[in-house]
């Protein structure tokens, strides 16, 4: 387990991180973040960790950049867990393609966010690439998600981040199941889908069941 005694862990991202944490499921939401917290606290209670969820539904990296100072730097986490949103890509395929984030802007923003976090908070990073529950790599949105995911993983590696491959985790379960088993819209998971993400995070954190 990479977390150490009395460290503070902040999660940030979009709706899959948020999961009602600002309202009926305050303060942790009812998604993967809550699962990770519950299992890490249950398994390593002596670490006495502090947790915060700063996910906000609908965010792209532009929105993250706008609130990075307040929600990340000011929080001074020891570990920052970033779930990069699906929205940056998804917007290109919906009613507001102008809200999609072009890949050059995306790369520059991702790099800037990670650099600011390390410089401004002195934190270490856990970085999840954007998720999309669709194993068909020829589908246009899936192909674009793969390109954006590769950007995230390449930049994150340069910051010595722990990397969580969310779309790959769903590819594994989709070998024997259908996207509808995990989500109604291929992005927002049901609880077992959140457990797919949580399991990928727990493995990246060095969680040991024994």
């Amino acid at each position: 387990m990479i977390f150490e005694h009395e460290q503070k862990i902040v999660f940030i991202g979009a709706s899959v991180t948020d999961c009602g944490r600002r309202e009926e499921h305050a303060p942790y939401g009812n998604g993967y973040m809550s699962l990770v917290r519950a299992f890490v606290d249950a398994r390593y209670p002596e670490l006495d960790l502090t947790w915060a969820n700063r996910g906000i539904g609908g965010n792209t990296v532009r929105d993250l950049a706008a609130r990075w100072e307040k929600d990340v730097i000011a929080e001074q986490p020891d570990w920052l867990c970033i779930q990069f949103p699906t929205n940056d890509v998804w917007r290109f395929f919906g009613d507001h393609p102008e809200q999609g984030v072009p890949i050059d802007e995306y790369e520059a923003t991702v790099r800037s966010l990670l650099q600011q976090a390390v410089d401004g908070a002195g934190c270490r990073l856990v970085v999840a690439d954007p998720l999309y529950i669709n194993a068909d790599r020829t589908e246009p949105m899936r192909a674009m998600i793969d390109d954006y995911g590769a950007v995230v993983r390449r930049i994150a590696a340069g910051f010595d981040a722990r990397i969580v491959r969310q779309t790959a985790a769903f590819d594994a379960v989709l070998a024997t199941t259908a996207p509808a088993d995990w989500s109604d819209d291929r992005v927002h998971p049901h609880l077992p889908g959140h457990a797919v993400i949580a399991s990928a995070f727990l493995r990246a954190l060095g969680f040991s069941l024994a």
């Binding site: 699962l35 379960v173 024997t176 199941t177 077992p192 889908g193 959140h194 457990a195 797919v196």
Partner: peptide
Amino acid sequence: VSLVRAFVTARYPE
């Protein structure tokens, strides 16, 4: 029960 179901389903979906 819900936690066990979710994690076992996620790990052994087949």
